[in-house]
Structures are given as structure tokens and as C-alpha cells.
Amino acid sequence: MNLNLNGKRAIVTGGSRGIGKAVIDNFVAENMQVATCARGLASLEKSLTEWNKAGTCVTGQSVDVTDEQAYANWFEQSVQQLGGLDILVSNVTTRIESKGIERWKDTFEVDLLQHIRATELALPYLKKGNQPAIVYVASIASVMTANMPSEVEYGTMKAALVSYATQLANQLGQFNIRVNLVSPGPIHHEQGFWEMVKQKQPDLYQRACAVSVFNRMGTPTEVANAITFLSSPAASNITAVNLRVDGGAIKTVNY
């Protein structure tokens, strides 16, 4: 299938590793122009070196997405370098260390507000883009009532993100901007959360694997493949969809 992504311009937040990096790997393979950001400079530089050695057009900068001005500056500079914007993949998340009410505030900043901030920055350009699309990375935690204690706030914010995105899809249809979400289940990647769990709590890791009908974790590439399709003109009549990439972990009938 030809996804018709050749030459398209995309911003992928949180692209240094995991799902974000896998998305950029796919976009690079489709001959797209990409800009990304990440908080960790070392992993970002490693990924940029890999992409640039392959002769691809990927730029990146270390940015804290909760720093509103720094984030806005990077975003505007990136769009100017790209010469416009066709696709936004809003992917950033992080593990919050704070406790109590501060944890709720920090999770709100990272797992909801920064997605909205990216959207507001992107919309003026997407309205002039070529077959524009937005894809948010949510989580099956948004619909689970038995999340781990460390994911209560995370799941709540991801639920709010799903609501926000589906309402946005209805609003932006008049501009031919498609808005979708991908909700991964547990994903194992190098230096990721579940790799740490596997090393320190193997029993918990196995229980998490068992929620999938395949009895395994998903991979970043499996999620990225869904994001790449939803970003592409091949999905031109798909909007307001929350696509679960979870190996059948959520046991519900979806009409």
C-alpha cells in the first residue's frame, strides 16, 4: 500500500526513543521531513546521529515540554525549518516522581496540557497543510479501573486526552484536519518503564504480559505502524478514532 507520505512535514514530540523514535523511523522510511524534541539530550543526540548518517532530514532539540516559552520557541523554529506542517504526532509522556496533589498537577502538565499546547501551536500551520492530520498517543490506562497505583493520575489524564481529541476531531473536520488517537497497552522498549519492571519485578512483568491474548508485551514498532497509517492520506476517511494497540488486553465489545 502506498501511504502517500513522501515529502510530508511532521513534528513528532518525544522522538528520541520508544514509540516516538519508531514513528520517526517509519516517517524517515517514507521520505518525510521531521522535527522532534525530547527531554533527554543524550538519547536524542544518539537518535539524531543514527538518522542523519542515513542521509535523512530529521532535526531535534532538547526541550522541557512543560516550559511553555521554550516549547513554543522550539515549535515555531521547527515549523519554519520544515517550511510548513502537515502532521503532528503528540507523543510525549514521562514518569512523574512527585506525590499527592503535586503529582496530579505534574501529570496534568505532562499528560494533558502539553498535548493541548502543541495542538494550539500547530493548528495555524495545519490549516494550510497538505492533507493534515493529528495523532495523539493515549493509553489503555484511560479506560482501566484497576491501574497500578502509580498510574491513577496518568490514566485520568489520558481519559481527558481522549475526550479532548474526539471533540477536536468534530471541530476541525471543516478544515479537513483529521484527529485520531492510538492507545497502546504495555510496551517494552530499551530503557523503558517495563524493561525496568522486568529486571526488578519479574512477576509483575509477567502479569502485565498476560493481559494480552498473545501473552507478551507490545513493541514500539507495532504502535508506530498504527500511528503512521492514521497520519497518512491512506486513512483519509478516518477521524475521531481511538485505536487500541494492546494485543486484546481490554476485553470489551467495541461497536
Rank of each mutant, 00 (worst) to 15 (best):
A249G: 10
V211E: 08
E222K: 06
I177W: 14
T156F: 08
Y255S: 15
E102G: 04
V65Y: 04
Q81H: 13
K127G: 02
A234L: 03
F75G: 13
R95S: 03
P220M: 02
V110G: 10
G100Q: 04
H188W: 14
Q191A: 05
I227A: 01
N73I: 12
Y154C: 15
A118P: 00
T239Y: 01
V58M: 05
G14E: 04
V253D: 14
K105A: 02
N26M: 00
L204V: 14
S43Q: 12
A122V: 14
I11D: 11
A240S: 13
R207K: 14
G100K: 01
Y164G: 04
G7I: 05
L48D: 04
I250K: 10
N215L: 10
H189K: 05
G84K: 01
Q33Y: 09
A22Q: 09
C37F: 00
E50Y: 08
N4A: 11
Q171I: 01
T56H: 10
I250A: 09
E45K: 11
S98P: 12
R103D: 07
E195Y: 06
N215A: 07
F229A: 07
I238M: 11
L204K: 12
E97Y: 07
I187C: 00
M157G: 10
R103L: 03
S232H: 05
D64I: 00
V197S: 04
E102I: 08
I24Q: 05
A72Y: 01
Y71D: 09
G185D: 05
E102S: 10
N6W: 01
R244E: 05
Q131W: 14
T36P: 15
G192V: 13
N130G: 03
M1C: 08
T66N: 07
T221Y: 07
Q77N: 15
I134F: 09
I250S: 10
D111Y: 00
S163N: 15
Q33C: 12
T56S: 15
P124Q: 02
E222F: 01
C57N: 13
F214E: 14
F193C: 09
T252K: 14
T56G: 08
V253N: 09
C209V: 01
L230V: 09
G14Q: 06
L82Y: 10
A165Y: 06
L172R: 06
V162M: 13
S142P: 00
V245R: 09
M1Y: 08
F75H: 11
N170F: 06
S183D: 06
V79S: 08
A169N: 08
I87R: 10
F75Q: 11
D86F: 00
V110S: 12
A208Q: 14
W104M: 08
L41K: 15
D203E: 15
D203K: 15
S47Y: 01
I134H: 03
K200H: 02
V92A: 10
T36W: 05
Q167H: 15
V34H: 05
N2I: 07
I250P: 06
P233M: 07
F108W: 11
I250E: 09
S236M: 03
L204G: 01
A224T: 04
R178H: 07
I96C: 03
R244F: 11
W74I: 11
